Simulated scan of single mutants.
Amino acid sequence: MVNPSASDDYFKFFGIQQQFNIDLPALDQAYLAIQKEVHPDRHARGSETEQCLAMQMATLANTAFQTLKNPIDRGLYICQLHGVDAKLETNTAMPAAFLMKQMEWRESLDEQAEDLSALEALMEEVEESKSETMIEITQAIDGAKNYTRAAELLRGLLFIDKFAVELDDTHC
């Protein structure tokens, strides 16, 4: 049974442990079970209030599922639950070494846009950086419970992700 009172915590809503490194198949199963339970067809003969509640729960399930399925959104959500706002819109400060790496990648992309093997090597480097950052985020959230550090890492991951999309678009 869906627990509307757990709607203030997406992890409780799905009955899964609050952590960055989640079991995605378990999330999928919990989501499907809730969607089945609150599907409008199941409540077609119910009162207007029951129909409305079912619709709200279905909408909440979709929002919660999308948030927890995406690693960046999930990490930001966990930070937020612990009172840390990553301030993505206003806080773009990043460590100098990270900014230098971003500039190097951009230069490589500009200079080697026609060189398929160079682009593939750059994509490998970006993916490796993304994997390392994900490991650091997992350690910051699930291990150290350092949500401020996790927010910094998540801002960096957002930059890496955007660059990966640009690189992928160039690569195609």
Rank of each mutant, 00 (worst) to 15 (best):
H171F: 15
L60A: 12
L32D: 12
V38R: 00
Q66Y: 14
G143D: 02
F159H: 15
P95D: 05
Y31R: 07
G75I: 02
L99Q: 07
F20T: 00
L116P: 08
F65L: 02
D142K: 02
Q51P: 00
K130W: 09
Q102W: 10
F98R: 03
A96H: 15
C79H: 01
D85A: 07
T49M: 09
Q66I: 14
N3T: 09
Q19Y: 02
D85T: 03
E48W: 05
R149Q: 15
A96Q: 13
L81W: 04
G156F: 03
P71C: 11
T170D: 05
G83P: 04
D73M: 12
E127R: 08
A64I: 04
F65M: 03
E111M: 15
K130A: 08
E107Q: 14
P71K: 12
E152V: 13
A6P: 00
L157R: 01
R45N: 15
H171D: 11
N62W: 06
D23Y: 05
E128Y: 05
L53A: 10
K101N: 08
D161Q: 13
S5H: 12
K69I: 12
N91T: 10
L68E: 07
A140S: 05
K130L: 10
A26R: 13
G83F: 01
A61Y: 07
M1Q: 11
E120D: 15
I72Y: 04
G75H: 01
N62M: 07
A96S: 12
L76W: 04
E166H: 12
Q35S: 08
L119G: 06
R155E: 02
L88Y: 13
S47D: 07
C52F: 14
E48G: 02
E120C: 07
D168Y: 14
T59C: 06
N62Q: 10
Q17T: 13
E50Y: 00
A97W: 04
R45W: 15
Y147N: 00
L158W: 10
K87M: 06
H82M: 06
D115F: 10
E104A: 04
M103F: 08
E128D: 14
N21F: 10
A26H: 06
N146T: 07
M1F: 13
T170R: 09
A6Y: 12
D115Q: 14
L81S: 04
Q51G: 02
A44W: 06
E120H: 12
Q18H: 05
W105F: 09
I137A: 00
P71L: 14
Q56A: 13
L76D: 07
P40N: 03
M1N: 09
F11C: 01
F20S: 01
H171M: 14
Q102V: 12
L153H: 04
L158P: 01
N62V: 04
A150L: 09
H39W: 03
T170F: 06
I78M: 01
V165Y: 03
K162V: 11
E48N: 05
I135Q: 15
F98Q: 09
S129I: 06
D23N: 14
L154V: 03
F14M: 01
E132N: 12
E120N: 13
T67C: 09
T59D: 11
E125L: 10
Q80R: 12
K130E: 09
A164K: 11
